[in-house]
């Protein structure tokens, strides 16, 4: 494809004498180079469209993960959802098309990985828990080189990432997008049939919440259902020990005094609202979309480096992993509810 950054991919040209898209007006007319190029393009588009249709059937569920602004933990959440779904025995793919900072590979121990293309097909890398990964980072010269993509090239790459990847059969495909209302979600929504919906990630701060309201509007304009809102970095839990049933006091983030009573074993814990908690839920209620749950502030959520490890892998029974599992349950329930309401109510076909 012209203008494509994935140069290894050469679409097969239609054989000479094959059905000529220009209607076979003159038998002996040799197509000009330009016509030839157009034919090749149409042919590869057709092929891609067919595989995309096929992909619609082979991948049972497709979930888009978005946020109104960067740095709220969208990629951390997308990766966590993929791992959590995989922990339940699902076959999961993770497509990272956040060109502003494709950091999913590093969260799954795949830093430094490059695109694997064989016979014109792209093969995903396999990360922890067998999660299959395709990332814009695989196209970079080095993980630290920022890329400036021109619009058409970027969208072409995304379409290739959708149509030319050998995902195989998947139960879930999770897609991590750039923050805000960029072109990418539109391209994906137009190219991929039957998207289950969008998960919007926010933090409890007012600015992030405002942006997540915009994301809900954005989802509506794309005609993609909103699965719900996840509130990330929502409160930090500290633990300690004291004497059995002893009451101790802790100073909170805004200097308020919090009194806690230890249990029979002398253990106590308290969740501090680093940012004001509950904003995600209020926003969800306001916008009339589901609230999927909170993820705690967890400074070690990703153990860094190219061989990064997500908390879900490092501590499958830990607080973060449990929070992710409950959000996954909420997502599954919401997807099912959306399907039910679509098939019963809504459009009447006679």
């Amino acid at each position: 494809m012209t203008g494509s950054p994935i140069t290894q991919h050469t679409p097969k040209s239609p054989k000479e004498g094959d059905e000529n898209p220009s209607g076979e007006k003159e038998e002996d007319a040799t197509p000009t180079a330009d016509q030839q190029r157009q034919m090749e393009q149409a042919f590869s588009q057709m092929k891609r469209k067919m595989t995309i249709q096929e992909m619609g059937d082979k991948i049972k569920h497709k979930i888009m993960v978005l946020s109104g602004k960067g740095g709220v933990g969208k990629s951390t959440v997308a990766t966590g959802l993929a791992l959590s779904l995989a922990n339940q025995g699902n076959t999961v793919g993770l497509l990272d098309i956040d060109i502003t900072g494709p950091n999913v590979p590093k969260m799954l121990g795949l830093g430094g990985h490059r695109l694997n293309v064989e016979g014109g097909r792209i093969f995903p890398a396999v990360g922890q828990r067998g999660v299959k990964v395709i990332s814009m980072a695989f196209l970079l010269e080095s993980d630290d080189t920022p890329v400036v993509w021109r619009g058409p090239i970027k969208l072409g790459a995304i379409q290739q990432f959708i149509g030319d990847v050998e995902w195989g059969e998947l139960d879930y495909l999770v897609i991590d997008f750039p923050p805000g209302s960029s072109d990418e979600p539109l391209t994906v929504a137009q190219s991929l049939p039957n998207i289950d919906g969008m998960v919007i990630v926010t933090t409890p701060q007012e600015v992030a919440l405002l942006d997540s309201r915009k994301s809900v509007g954005f989802a509506n304009s794309l005609k993609v259902p909103v699965i719900g809102i996840v509130e990330n970095m929502s409160g930090y839990t500290i633990h300690g020990t004291a004497q059995a049933n002893q009451t101790i006091s802790v100073t909170g983030p805004t200097n308020e005094i919090i009194e806690i009573t230890a249990n029979e074993a002398g253990d106590w814990s308290v969740t501090l609202d680093i940012f004001k908690q509950g904003g995600g839920q209020t926003t969800a209620e306001e916008m009339d979309v589901p609230f999927l749950g909170r993820l705690p502030f967890d400074p070690g959520v990703i153990r860094g480096g190219d061989d990064g490890v997500h908390r879900i892998v490092a501590q499958p029974e830990g607080e973060s992993a449990i929070a992710f599992a409950s959000i996954v349950e909420a997502i599954k329930k919401q997807i099912k509810d959306n399907k039910d309401s679509q098939s019963s109510g809504g459009l009447e076909i006679i």
């Binding site: 039957n194 998207i195 005609k223 993609v224 259902p225 809504g346």
Partner: peptide, 8 residues
């Protein structure tokens, strides 16, 4: 006629 998602 097969509905596709809620949009097509």
């Amino acid at each position: 006629v097969n509905p596709v998602g809620g949009y097509a």
